[in-house]
Simulated assay, not measured.
Amino acid sequence: MESLFIPTLVVALAEIGDKTQLLALLLAARYRRPWPIIWGIVVATLANHLAAGAVGSWVARELSEETLSWILAAAFGAMALWTLVPDKLEDDETRRVRRFGPFMATLVAFFLAEMGDKTQVATVMLAAQYPDFLMVILGTTLGMLVANVPVVLAGNFAADRLPLALIRRIAAAAFAALALYAIYQALKLSGMLA
């Protein structure tokens, strides 16, 4: 269950205030049809995170557990800092997909917006850390849905009232705690801690 729960939590935290969450809000306001948008998010996230998870699994096979722990610690530390920076959604991304219906617009826009994004990087790290590949992918996809479906369903109402700066700081603190735990694990593996 850890291979499902931790990826769900990590991606849900990383997604708060992310450009794909802003994209979900924009698509919800534009199309006013939540279900095609939600299904577009599901399909795009599964495709993107399957690729990211495959990279993470490959990295896990190629590196020692100690090296992987140090990389994980650095990545979680970087995620903590990255989470503090609010994302902006480029207008070009949204303008190009408006001519499609809500499902295709969401599918294309979400897939492209996730490339190199925090949640894709998190998926690579989590797939490298946990051996149950499918549970990690399901968890990261579920985390994406936990963060984005309420935005799609609530539209502008929820986005205007959420204290995003506070939520970003809490998410950054959670990533910093994960980085410290990964450092502890790396030190233990290296024999520096008993």
Rank of each mutant, 00 (worst) to 15 (best):
E2A: 10
E2L: 14
S3R: 07
F5A: 14
I6C: 10
P7R: 00
T8C: 09
V11I: 15
A12W: 07
E15W: 04
I16Y: 01
G17P: 11
D18H: 00
T20E: 03
L22W: 01
L23M: 12
L23E: 08
L27N: 12
L27I: 07
A28D: 01
R30V: 06
Y31M: 10
R33W: 00
P34R: 02
W35R: 13
P36V: 03
P36K: 03
I38A: 03
G40W: 13
I41T: 08
I41P: 01
T45Y: 03
L46C: 04
L46G: 09
A47C: 14
H49F: 13
A52K: 10
G53Y: 09
V55Y: 05
W58R: 12
V59H: 10
A60V: 13
R61V: 04
E62N: 12
E66C: 05
W70K: 07
W70R: 00
L72E: 10
A73Y: 06
A74C: 12
A75K: 05
F76I: 13
A78N: 06
L81M: 09
W82H: 04
W82T: 02
T83N: 06
L84V: 01
L84R: 09
P86D: 02
L89A: 05
E90R: 12
D92I: 11
E93Q: 04
R95S: 09
F100R: 12
F100Y: 15
M104W: 15
T106L: 09
T106A: 06
L107P: 02
L107T: 03
A109D: 07
F110T: 08
F110P: 01
L112Y: 08
A113G: 04
A113L: 14
M115I: 15
G116F: 05
K118F: 00
K118E: 06
Q120E: 15
V121R: 07
T123D: 08
M125N: 07
Q129G: 10
D132T: 12
D132E: 15
F133L: 11
L134V: 14
M135L: 15
V136G: 07
G139E: 13
G139P: 08
T141I: 01
G143D: 05
L145N: 00
L145S: 05
V146R: 03
V149P: 02
V149F: 01
P150T: 02
G155C: 13
G155T: 08
G155Q: 12
F157P: 00
A159T: 14
D160I: 01
R161M: 00
R161K: 09
L162Q: 08
P163M: 11
L164R: 02
A165K: 15
A165W: 07
L166F: 12
I167M: 11
I167N: 07
R168A: 00
R169G: 05
A171T: 12
A174Q: 10
A174W: 05
F175G: 08
F175M: 14
A176E: 12
L178D: 06
Y181I: 04
Y184T: 12
Y184H: 14
A186W: 07
K188S: 15
S190F: 06
S190M: 11
M192I: 15
M192H: 14
L193N: 11
L193D: 02
A194C: 01
A194I: 08
A194M: 10
A194H: 13
